[in-house]
Design a protein around this nucleic acid. Structure first.
Lengths: 209, 209
DNA sequence: CCTCTTTTGAACTCATGGGTTCAACATAAT
DNA sequence: ATTATGTTGAACCCATGAGTTCAAAAGAGG
């Protein structure tokens, strides 16, 4: 019975992953359940055996993908918990990691799906909400607040600082990656992280940093 | 013959506008030509009399909408051509106008359509390219370069300055408008313009400004 | 060997929608 | 009036795809 359950869980996972892949490639309306089943290595009725609808399949697939992506992003802030003497270097490291994660194929796909289906599925925003920029911004604001207390950043609104840090870092991505359709070489990511941190430190740094 | 031609042009315009409206509301795949025709106040065969395909209809509709939107945005930079004594005030005015334009329904719709159909229509990015952030960034960079020459901004890379100005200004929009699905009160737009300009001036300003 | 659950493939129903055809109609120019 | 062009509505053909049904396998537990 254990193996049976495992088997079921495996199928479910495969279905969710295959669904995300196909939805990402085709969009919601164009994706057909037949193809999702094929991608997941499963028969079509099996899909309907786990999910009632194409719509709920979509929601669950998005949720699963968003959860994975969220974990990576928040983990990327870790170095800020114990920044070394060189704050700028730590910021650049975090910035670079965030850029890499943000330009990842799955991230771009999720982003595109959110934008395209937000009209037909207004609730997906809430499903993904916590995983979206919000939780990342809050986690970053927490880190920055500690730095401000230590006198290494301006003591003003850390939420605003976090928002602007992410804006400086991620804003230019849209144009440079052509809405997420182009890969960026790692060297360019480093440069982008550098200039973003430069501007951020000029706007939010203190002499002590 | 003149009136006949005018009539044809009017129908064509109506079709393009109706198409954009429906595509924006439904997405490409979900939008049906029947409904576009209804929205444009026209019969279905008339649509096919002007456009060969649903696909080319989509492209033309996007192009027309993008052109309109572009004009507004570049025009919004006008005050920077002759900035008054108070550079910060001029920047805030421009910033506020850009925010208003960027949160406009048509702008958001265009943005969503780009994101959602970029996979099926890789060429729409080129069609809209000039109208996209690129041309705006360049136009802004030109203005900022003049200001730098006048000693009112850092003399470093004006393209980077423009990129970061727009990032600081527009980056926070995504989260605040919930991907363009929520209206923002004008007061919030003013506040956002203010804090973005503050940070920008701290990062790029000179004593002379 | 028997049983219960799950999976599978194939065929099926049914709705939607792209694109076309056609005959009737409107309009304006000659 | 006649002719040419454009529009219209309705009906039509045809492909696609969601969701279901079913009988046959496949696998685990007893």
């Amino acid at each position: 019975m254990t193996t049976t359950t495992r088997g079921r869980i495996d199928k479910r996972q495969a279905i969710l992953e295959g669904a995300f892949t196909v939805f990402a490639r085709e969009g919601y309306a164009q994706a057909c359940v037949q193809e999702i089943a094929r991608e997941a290595g499963v028969a079509k009725p099996t899909v309907y055996n786990h999910m009632t609808d194409k719509a709920t399949l979509f929601r669950h697939a998005l949720e699963a993908a968003a959860r994975r992506i969220l974990e990576e992003r928040v983990a990327a802030l870790e170095p800020l918990a114990a920044p070394g003497d060189d704050l700028r270097a730590t910021l650049e490291e975090v910035a670079h990691t965030l850029l890499r994660l943000h330009t990842d194929g799955r991230s771009c796909a999720l982003r595109r799906l959110l934008y395209s289906e937000i009209n037909h599925f207004p609730d997906i925003l809430d499903i993904v909400k916590e995983s979206g920029p919000d939780r990342l911004t809050h986690a970053l604001a927490d880190r920055l607040a500690r730095l401000a207390l230590a006198g290494r950043l301006r003591a003003a609104d850390p939420d605003l600082a976090a928002e602007q840090f992410l804006a400086l870092l991620l804003g230019p991505l849209e144009a440079r990656t052509r809405l997420g359709t182009r890969e960026l070489p790692d060297a360019e990511l480093r440069t982008m992280a550098g200039v973003a941190v430069d501007a951020f430190v000029r706007a939010w740094g203190t002499a002590a940093a």
